[in-house]
Amino acid sequence: MISNIIVISSIVLALVFTIVWIARPNLRRRIEAPKYDFLRQVQRYNRQVGDKRDDKNGVRQ
């Protein structure tokens, strides 16, 4: 009984995610946005590391 609920709810969740993915291209783009944003943040930080190698108290732009 419980295992059936788990399996059925899993299938429903998977379907919902898939339908949203297919039906909402805008949402698809927005969901992907954080990875680009993160990449910019982390690359900026990485560049700061090079700039501030002698800063003993941390890195700050």
């Binding site: 783009r29 927005r30 992907e32 946005a33 954080p34 680009y36 944003d37 990449l39 910019r40 690359q43 990485n46 560049r47 590391v49 090079g50 190698r53 002698d54």
Partner: peptide
């Protein structure tokens, strides 16, 4: 600071990921 030097060196060697205008637009909107 040898680690930081390695990071710096890698940044020089690393190809920059192309950020398409669409990606920029979405990211800006967010």
């Amino acid at each position: 600071g040898a680690g930081a030097m390695a990071v710096e060196q890698k940044l020089i060697e690393q190809p920059v990921e192309e950020i398409t205008p669409e990606r920029v637009r979405v990211s800006e909107a967010v």
